[in-house]
Design a protein around this nucleic acid. Structure first.
Lengths: 138, 138
DNA sequence: GACAATAATGCACTTCCGTTGCATAGGTCA
DNA sequence: TGACCTATGCAACGGAAGTGCATTATTGTC
């Protein structure tokens, strides 16, 4: 918990009890988490607080937002030292059609794409859908 | 208009007046269209009708749905003969941060990705964001 | 051409999720 | 301690997708 506190402080986020818990929750889960997920896990807390905590985390580069095509925004912890805006840190995400969980494949960067004349890419999002390792193993 | 009628019939969609107009609209626009766009263009028509028309078109492989990360579902005409479910027909989309328009880059297929053991990909979505050719030209 | 069956359209309403405004509680610093 | 700033809680809004049901149009059959 001390480590989490330090991580938050380093990134310019005041380590309140709520935030520590949310960070811990994100760290334990190895998949991308939606606001609704968190809400279910912290029934006592306000949705708004959770929402704003996630946004704060995102602004401070503690989590990155994931759009996996479900229409629901999800979040996952950033790797320490990663800057999710840089092309080299853009990794792909995998959405399982079976368990509906989305995981970061941080080792798999998005390949560079040659665009037609006139197009300038600043950001990229690649989502693969299918069956994840947990579900295919059975 | 006869051609459109034929296209719809071939794909098993009854060519009503409404549908012909919507198809025509999609064909003229060269960018991905949201339900709200269409609603604005056809002020007289019901949202539900437009919504269901788009869904029907999608089911019958006349349009494909695009998730460009804006949280708004968009649609664009499929190339004749394309099967948007097949890996070889999966192309990437480009969302312009300046004009907010999303275009299909049908010539640019999504590269094949080697996934970790246990992951089986069935579908893929790649969206690049940046400045499009129209906006960068100025 | 008239009729029944089927499909498309229009209207009302719901749900889900993200988002904001404002009041209150809590922590920080002089 | 008191003033200030930040975080939290509560209430409400708004956009977009989606559904149920009645009505209208279209098709096939006799």
């Amino acid at each position: 918990m001390k480590k989490i506190e330090q991580r938050l402080t380093e990134n310019g986020v005041r380590p309140t009890a709520m935030r520590l818990l949310i960070y811990k929750y994100l760290a334990e889960k190895e998949v991308a988490i939606s606001l609704t997920d968190i809400e279910a896990a912290f029934a006592k807390a306000e949705r708004t607080t959770l929402y704003r905590t996630l946004r704060t985390f995102e602004e401070k580069k503690i989590v990155h937002q994931i759009d996996d095509g479900t229409g629901i925004q999800k979040y996952a912890l950033c790797e320490p030292g990663c800057d999710c805006n840089l092309e080299q840190d853009l990794h792909l995400h995998f959405l399982c059609n079976n368990c509906d969980e989305t995981v970061c494949l941080t080792e798999h960067k998005i390949p560079h794409i040659n665009l037609p004349e006139g197009f300038v890419a600043e950001d990229a999002n690649l989502v693969l859908k299918g069956i994840c390792d947990k579900c295919s193993g059975q």
